[in-house]
Design a protein around this nucleic acid. Structure first.
Lengths: 211, 211
DNA sequence: CGACAGGTTGAGCCTAGTCAATGAATGTGG
DNA sequence: CCACATTCATTGACTAGGCTCAACCTGTCG
């Protein structure tokens, strides 16, 4: 098990309340690396909250090109839908523990679900700017800055996802992700410690690089 | 005045109800081409519904690169915010008539506002796939197919926006938009009638081109 | 230790961007 | 009504950022 995949006891997760105010009471369920949480086209029954690990929301084109619409990290809520049909596939990234709740039991929390969905909108719209107008190095800089804010500890980000996942999130190839990361190291703004751990040595410069 | 900018009497627009079920009662206001409806950073007071014309939601990078996050077409509602601050600028595309309502007076319609915001999320997440993984011709094909579904009449789409707007929405340059459109004509799937009107001569083939 | 998946690096290519010239459309004033 | 100005769109020549294909390296685990 990797350091970034802190497992928590399923029992301890039974009632997780993060600072978002949404008390998502449900059963904690463990997903293995790559396991599908739900698939595009499925009937939407549950909402989920990440207790540990991470998940990815994936959309595919017919020829296999893949876009990761969003990464869900500890504390994030996902699976809220207006319709009955899942609009994309969500899979565990590495091993993950999710708290599961029937969507129908959450209607009293409508206001808070609303906030989570709106946060997703804000994130998606920000990401549109990145995919539409930023260069490879700007995409990486944005990505690392964002991750640092969400799961960074003391300037170090433990990446839960593979290079392929990062590439598919940023609309690049693994080769470009790899090269760009090397280049950022050359500029002295980040420092890799193994391929799943990045230290942001100069976060201000990294933020500059986002333009 | 262009054919696609059907003006309606402000009085007639006082209570616009489209098939979305949201009865947005307010004052109709006319905006000139390019006029700002609200700016990034402004305090969010009103919500808007497009009566005629179109609007664009714009985000800028420091060096002037521009991303059009979304086009709002007749019937679309925008300006719903969770916070008090506008997250992007919205401007009229060509002349436009908008119905304006105080956000605070809309709280009883929360359920319907919710639907509009969720629709924006679905659109944004779909567009992420386009910007992240589609080629120039696939982007144009997606764009035209989408527009045809929203404002197409009999296979003809009257474009409310300029080439620059299209480019900034699709993450391309005007030259690439222009060339790609010419190329689509060469393939016989579309037919331009002046630069603001496109006939989808072979919509099925166009849908194929989206991959 | 050896095998394998995942990551890095290199060489060459291709799509889309840049820079520049031309052409079409719209608007203004004489 | 036409000459001119201005803006927007198209086309061409060239460039470059990122992709493809391929080899090599690294770290993780049996």
């Amino acid at each position: 098990m990797h350091a970034h995949q802190r497992m928590i006891s399923p029992l301890a997760a039974r009632a997780i309340e993060a600072d978002d105010g949404l008390k998502l009471i449900g059963v904690a369920k463990t997903f293995a690396a790559g396991q599908e949480v739900f698939g595009e086209g499925d009937t939407a029954v549950y909402a989920f909250k990440v207790a540990s690990g991470a998940a990815r929301a994936v959309r595919l084109l017919a020829d296999g090109r893949r876009q990761i619409v969003e990464f869900y990290l500890p504390g994030d809520v996902f699976g809220i839908e207006l319709g009955q049909i899942r609009r994309m596939t969500v899979e565990a990234v590495g091993d993950a523990v999710l708290v599961v709740a029937r969507r129908t039991t959450l209607t009293k929390d409508a206001e808070r679900l609303w906030r989570h969905a709106f946060a997703a909108l804000v994130r998606a719209e920000n990401h549109l700017l990145t995919l539409g107008r930023r260069s490879a190095s700007e995409r990486l800089a944005s990505f690392l800055t964002d991750l640092a804010a969400r799961i960074g500890a003391d300037g170090v980000v433990e990446l839960p996802m593979s290079r392929q996942d990062i590439a598919d999130h940023l609309g690049l190839t693994i080769e470009t992700v790899s090269r760009t990361l090397t280049q950022l190291q050359g500029q002295g703004v980040v420092e890799a410690r193994g391929c799943r751990s990045v230290r942001l040595t100069h976060p201000a410069a990294l933020a500059e690089l986002c333009e």
